[in-house]
Simulated assay, not measured.
Amino acid sequence: MTDDLAPQKRALRAELRERRRNLTRDERAAATTGITEQLVALVRKIDARSVSCYLSAQDEPNTREFANWARDAGIRVLFPITRTDGLLDWTTATDDEEETLGLFGTPEAVGELLGPIAINDVDLIVVPAAAVDGSGMRLGWGRGYYDKTLGSMERCPPVYAVLFDSELVDEVPRERHDQAVDGVVTPTRTVEFSTRSPRRRRI
């Protein structure tokens, strides 16, 4: 990270974390309903039979209802498992999901580890984000797992970040290793970006 962008990213992440903490219970419940509906519609639109999705933490937009719906609908769901080498392992969602805390204190599923290349078989990747701008550039939380994963894929399926509505912003600080997304899902809408990497499969 350059000296110029490091403070910008830290400040923006801190502001966004504080906003999330200040959401009311009713606001969170409404957001969960909206995000689930948007993700279900997206899966149906692209006819995804396998997806990767993270287990949301307490202050994150809730992806758990969507993951449960997908599993119950017979869609294969992969959850990420953090590794010390900066890569992600994956495990398959089950009916009796067990959870633990990962390397950074965030929830992760417990299951058979499938290795980093398991992500190559999904039809849709759902990722967390702090913010995304109008060009599709994603600001993550600073650990680089998804940037490394997406940057290494030769044929990446559509990638959508899940955000609260206020986190789709005009611009985020960008570095060379940062990876853009194909769209965002918020409680009220799904936004697709017109500029996509040529290595990605289009919807």
Rank of each mutant, 00 (worst) to 15 (best):
R71N: 09
E60G: 00
V51P: 00
V43Y: 03
L5M: 07
R176G: 02
D96Q: 06
R201F: 11
P173M: 09
R25Q: 14
G140L: 09
R64W: 10
Q38H: 10
E60Q: 01
F164G: 05
A73K: 11
V77M: 00
L16R: 10
E154A: 15
L114T: 07
R17G: 04
F66D: 04
A11K: 12
R202T: 14
R21Y: 01
R19G: 04
T188K: 12
G102Y: 09
A109L: 01
R199M: 06
S166R: 10
A41Q: 13
R71G: 01
E60V: 01
R83K: 08
G105L: 06
I117S: 14
R10H: 12
L5A: 05
A41R: 14
D95I: 09
D147P: 02
T149Q: 14
R201S: 12
S56I: 01
N120L: 12
Q8W: 03
D72L: 12
I46S: 04
R155S: 14
T186W: 10
A130W: 00
D182E: 08
M137L: 13
R83L: 04
E65M: 06
S152F: 02
A131P: 09
T100I: 02
S135W: 00
K148S: 13
L78S: 11
T91F: 01
R189C: 12
V184Q: 05
Q58A: 15
P7K: 08
T84Q: 12
V185F: 00
D3V: 13
T2I: 07
A29S: 11
R25I: 11
Y146V: 11
W141P: 00
G142Q: 09
E27T: 03
M137R: 13
E37T: 08
P107R: 07
T32E: 15
T149K: 13
G86Q: 10
A118C: 08
G151Q: 04
P7R: 04
L163Q: 02
T24S: 15
T2Y: 06
R21L: 10
R143C: 05
F104K: 05
H177S: 09
C53K: 02
V40R: 05
Q38R: 15
V169L: 06
V159A: 07
R20A: 06
R143N: 12
G140Q: 05
V40T: 00
E65R: 12
I35L: 11
G183C: 07
R49Q: 15
V77G: 03
Y145V: 00
D89F: 08
G102D: 13
D170I: 05
R28F: 06
L139P: 02
R202V: 15
R49F: 03
P198A: 12
V169C: 03
S135C: 01
R49C: 08
A129S: 11
E167G: 04
M1A: 10
V126C: 04
S52C: 06
T92D: 06
G74I: 14
A70I: 09
E18Q: 15
E99S: 11
R13N: 02
R174I: 13
L103C: 04
N68D: 14
E154K: 13
A48Y: 01
W141V: 03
A93W: 07
P116A: 14
D4I: 13
Q38C: 13
H177N: 11
V110C: 00
I75A: 05
D26E: 15
T91Q: 01
L113K: 14
R176A: 15
